Amino acid sequence: MVGNYQGGGGPVDRAEQASPDSVSATASCSQGAQSSATTLAEASDQFHPSRRGSTRLSAAAGLLSWLSPRAWCIETEAAQLARLVAPGSVCIDIGAGYGLYSTLFAAAAGPDGRTLAIEANPRLTKRLHRLATVLRAPSLQPIGAAVSSASGVDTQLSVPYRNSMPVFGRAFMLHGAAHHGPNSEFDRDRLIDLTTTTLDELTEEFGVNRIDVIKVDIEGAEYAMLCGAHAVLTRHRPLWMLEIEERHLAKYGHRAADVVDLMASHGYAMYRWRGDQWQRCSHVSPTARNYLFRIP
C-alpha cells in the first residue's frame, strides 16, 4: 500500500530476462474493453484520463500519474497499470487504502466505466466515499469489505501503530494468519471486527457482469482472496496486478510460488515493470513486489 513502498524495480537478475515476445503480446482485457491490437508496450506509452470525466478527477489522476515515477510514496506501477485501462472498463481495487489506484482507474475508465474500491478498514472506506464526492466521480464506488477465501467468517483487522500513529498500509486480516509476521516490529495494534466475504460473492452482490482490471494489495492475504475468486478467474479472466511478498504471505502459511502457480493454473502469464516496460518473468524477485498477470 501507499506509504511503505521500497521500489518497484531494482537490479535485474540475468536469469529473469524477459522473453522476446514479452512486451508484444496483446494487452486486451477479457471482454474487449481494450483493443486486441494494443500491446503492453503501446498501452504504457501515455496516460490519458477520459475527456468526458470530471475535471477534478482528471486533474487528480494526472498529478498522481506524474508523481508515480518521481515520489517515493507512490508506486511506480500505479501509473503504468492505469495506462492499461481503456475507457468503459470495469476495474476493482482490492485493498484500496487512500484511493491511489481507484482514482487512476476511475479517470482512465471514464464515466462509462466503473471502479469498485474495496477496503476492509471502515475508517479508510469513509475517506474513499469522501474522495469520490470531492472528485465528482460517481463511477468510483467505495465498498467496505474484507475479501478472503470464504464468506461469513468473523475475524478482525489488525491495524499496527508506531509512535501512537496508525500505519494503515500494514493492516492485515487475522483470519488464517498464524502470527503477525513482519508486523511484530510495531509497538501495538488496534483490532477491528470484520466478517469476510469472497470476491465471487461480492461481484455477484453488486451486479458486476464484466471485469477488466483488478489490483490487489492486502498484506499477504492475496492467495486466500484468489481461492475465493474462482468465477472471476475462470469466467471474467481480467488483467490482474497482485502484490506478492514472501514476508507477508508467510504469516498465512503461503509462499510467493503458491500465488504464481495458482495464476499459471488458470492460464495467466506473469510480468513485472522493469525500466520502462512490462517484461515477462517466471518467478518473484526480492527487488519487486507488484506483478501483472494476463492471459497470453
Rank of each mutant, 00 (worst) to 15 (best):
A25Q: 10
A25M: 12
A27K: 07
S28P: 04
Q31C: 09
G32W: 06
A33W: 09
S35N: 10
S35A: 13
S36Y: 14
S36W: 10
T38C: 00
T39D: 09
L40A: 11
A41P: 02
A43W: 06
A43M: 04
S44G: 15
Q46C: 13
H48K: 10
P49G: 08
S50F: 11
R56D: 05
R56S: 11
L57P: 05
L57I: 04
S58A: 09
S58F: 01
A61D: 09
G62Y: 01
G62N: 12
G62Q: 03
S65A: 14
W66N: 04
L67R: 11
L67K: 05
A71Y: 08
W72E: 12
E75V: 03
T76W: 10
E77Q: 15
E77S: 15
E77I: 12
A78M: 03
A78Q: 13
L81P: 10
G88W: 02
V90W: 03
C91Y: 01
I92V: 15
I92T: 06
A96R: 00
L100Q: 02
Y101L: 12
S102V: 00
S102W: 01
T103W: 03
L104P: 00
A108F: 03
A109D: 07
A109M: 02
G110V: 01
D112S: 15
R114E: 11
L116Q: 05
L116E: 03
I118T: 11
A120D: 03
N121C: 10
P122S: 05
R123E: 14
R123L: 07
K126W: 07
L128A: 05
R130S: 13
V134N: 07
V134D: 00
R136L: 09
L140M: 07
P142E: 01
I143A: 07
G144N: 15
A145S: 11
A145Y: 06
A145W: 06
V147C: 12
S148T: 04
S148F: 05
